[in-house]
Lab assay of single mutants.
Amino acid sequence: RKEMTAACTPRRRIINLTSVLSLQEEINEQGHEVLREMLHNHSFVGCVNPQWALAQHQTKLYLLNTTKLSEELFYQILIYDFANFGVLRLSEPAPLFDLAMLALDSPESGWTEEDGPKEGLAEYIVEFLKKKAEMLADYFSLEIDEEGNLIGLPLLIDNYVPPLEGLPIFILRLATEVNWDEEKECFESLSKECAMFYSIRKQYISEESTLSGQQSEVPGSIPNSWKWTVEHIVYKALRSHILPPKHFTEDGNILQLANLPDLYKVFERC
Results as ranks from 00 to 15, higher is better:
216 S>F: 11
27 I>M: 03
51 Q>Y: 03
141 S>H: 04
130 K>T: 11
106 S>W: 11
256 Q>M: 15
40 H>I: 12
238 L>P: 00
256 Q>D: 08
87 V>I: 15
100 A>Q: 00
19 S>F: 02
87 V>E: 15
94 A>T: 15
72 E>D: 03
173 R>V: 01
14 I>R: 07
25 E>M: 06
178 V>C: 06
186 C>L: 05
243 L>Q: 13
34 V>L: 10
170 F>M: 04
62 Y>T: 00
119 E>P: 12
121 L>I: 12
123 E>S: 08
183 E>I: 02
223 P>L: 10
267 F>S: 15
239 R>K: 09
239 R>D: 01
55 A>K: 00
138 D>R: 05
173 R>Q: 04
261 P>G: 14
249 T>N: 10
6 A>D: 05
176 T>L: 10
212 S>R: 15
54 L>P: 01
104 L>S: 03
247 H>P: 04
116 G>V: 09
4 M>K: 05
240 S>T: 11
270 C>L: 10
41 N>D: 14
107 P>H: 14
171 I>T: 06
11 R>K: 06
41 N>Q: 14
230 V>A: 04
247 H>C: 13
2 K>F: 14
22 S>P: 08
88 L>K: 09
28 N>R: 13
68 K>C: 09
59 T>Q: 15
253 N>K: 10
106 S>L: 11
34 V>D: 11
30 Q>M: 09
140 F>M: 05
145 D>H: 03
108 E>A: 14
10 P>I: 13
204 Y>T: 04
241 H>F: 13
27 I>Q: 01
84 N>R: 02
79 I>T: 04
187 F>S: 00
80 Y>C: 12
132 K>C: 02
31 G>C: 09
63 L>E: 00
4 M>Q: 15
108 E>P: 06
156 L>G: 00
103 A>G: 10
132 K>A: 03
219 P>R: 14
186 C>A: 05
255 L>D: 03
82 F>C: 06
159 N>I: 03
259 N>G: 07
168 P>A: 10
253 N>C: 09
167 L>A: 04
101 M>D: 02
218 V>T: 15
213 G>R: 15
241 H>R: 08
189 S>T: 12
146 E>R: 08
53 A>F: 00
99 L>Y: 12
166 G>F: 00
222 I>T: 10
235 Y>P: 01
249 T>F: 10
249 T>Y: 09
254 I>F: 07
34 V>S: 07
219 P>N: 11
265 K>L: 05
47 C>D: 02
25 E>D: 14
201 R>W: 00
167 L>I: 06
51 Q>R: 07
57 H>L: 05
235 Y>R: 00
38 M>V: 12
223 P>F: 11
185 E>G: 11
213 G>W: 12
89 R>V: 14
151 I>F: 13
157 I>V: 11
60 K>W: 15
210 T>Y: 12
95 P>R: 09
119 E>S: 11
98 D>W: 07
53 A>V: 14
34 V>K: 07
150 L>N: 01
260 L>G: 10
179 N>K: 12
29 E>I: 08
72 E>F: 05
95 P>D: 12
116 G>S: 07
93 P>E: 09
40 H>S: 13
227 K>S: 05
36 R>G: 09
17 L>N: 06
179 N>W: 08
166 G>Y: 03
100 A>T: 12
35 L>Q: 04
53 A>I: 04
110 G>T: 11
233 I>A: 10
189 S>Y: 05
237 A>P: 00
215 Q>Y: 10
252 G>C: 11
118 K>H: 07
36 R>H: 07
269 R>W: 05
30 Q>I: 15
142 L>Q: 01
46 G>A: 10
109 S>D: 05
201 R>T: 03
187 F>W: 06
179 N>V: 14
249 T>R: 12
11 R>S: 09
199 S>L: 01
17 L>R: 05
246 K>Q: 13
154 P>F: 01
182 E>M: 10
229 T>V: 12
141 S>Y: 03
224 N>L: 13
112 T>P: 04
218 V>E: 15
114 E>P: 14
140 F>W: 15
31 G>F: 05
219 P>E: 13
215 Q>T: 06
99 L>N: 11
222 I>A: 14
106 S>C: 11
101 M>I: 12
46 G>T: 12
151 I>N: 13
204 Y>E: 03
132 K>P: 01
50 P>R: 04
189 S>N: 12
104 L>H: 03
240 S>D: 14
250 E>Y: 07
56 Q>C: 15
98 D>I: 05
253 N>F: 14
243 L>V: 11
234 V>A: 01
164 L>C: 06
139 Y>A: 03
158 D>T: 13
144 I>C: 03
201 R>D: 03
15 I>T: 07
248 F>W: 13
166 G>W: 01
225 S>G: 15
40 H>Y: 10
123 E>I: 12
194 C>M: 14
250 E>K: 08
90 L>R: 02
67 T>C: 04
19 S>R: 03
214 Q>Y: 08
136 L>M: 09
117 P>I: 09
242 I>M: 12
24 Q>R: 08
11 R>M: 11
113 E>R: 07
148 G>W: 04
60 K>P: 01
191 S>Y: 01
47 C>E: 02
211 L>T: 08
97 F>T: 09
33 E>A: 13
149 N>T: 12
111 W>G: 04
221 S>F: 11
260 L>I: 15
56 Q>P: 01
228 W>I: 06
107 P>D: 13
189 S>P: 00
215 Q>C: 11
120 G>K: 07
3 E>N: 11
95 P>Y: 11
32 H>W: 07
18 T>G: 08
43 S>P: 03
48 V>I: 14
241 H>L: 06
269 R>H: 07
171 I>A: 05
88 L>I: 12
204 Y>V: 04
53 A>D: 02
218 V>Q: 15
67 T>R: 04
119 E>A: 15
63 L>Y: 05
147 E>M: 07
252 G>L: 04
222 I>R: 14
235 Y>A: 00
129 L>H: 02
260 L>F: 11
270 C>I: 13
269 R>L: 05
245 P>F: 02
188 E>S: 13
225 S>T: 12
171 I>E: 02
154 P>Y: 01
91 S>W: 08
227 K>M: 05
267 F>V: 15
131 K>N: 12
256 Q>E: 12
40 H>A: 09
101 M>V: 10
64 L>H: 00
108 E>R: 08
197 F>W: 02
199 S>R: 02
171 I>P: 00
23 L>T: 02
20 V>A: 05
127 E>M: 12
181 D>K: 08
152 G>T: 11
265 K>G: 15
219 P>F: 10
90 L>T: 04
250 E>L: 08
43 S>V: 14
148 G>T: 05
65 N>F: 01
2 K>Q: 14
3 E>T: 08
47 C>T: 14
249 T>G: 15
125 I>W: 10
227 K>Q: 05
27 I>E: 01
245 P>L: 03
246 K>C: 12
194 C>G: 04
34 V>A: 11
123 E>Q: 10
241 H>I: 05
243 L>T: 09
99 L>W: 02
224 N>V: 15
244 P>W: 01
50 P>F: 07
107 P>E: 14
89 R>G: 12
240 S>E: 14
38 M>Q: 04
96 L>R: 00
86 G>W: 08
239 R>S: 04
101 M>T: 08
132 K>L: 01
63 L>R: 03
121 L>Y: 12
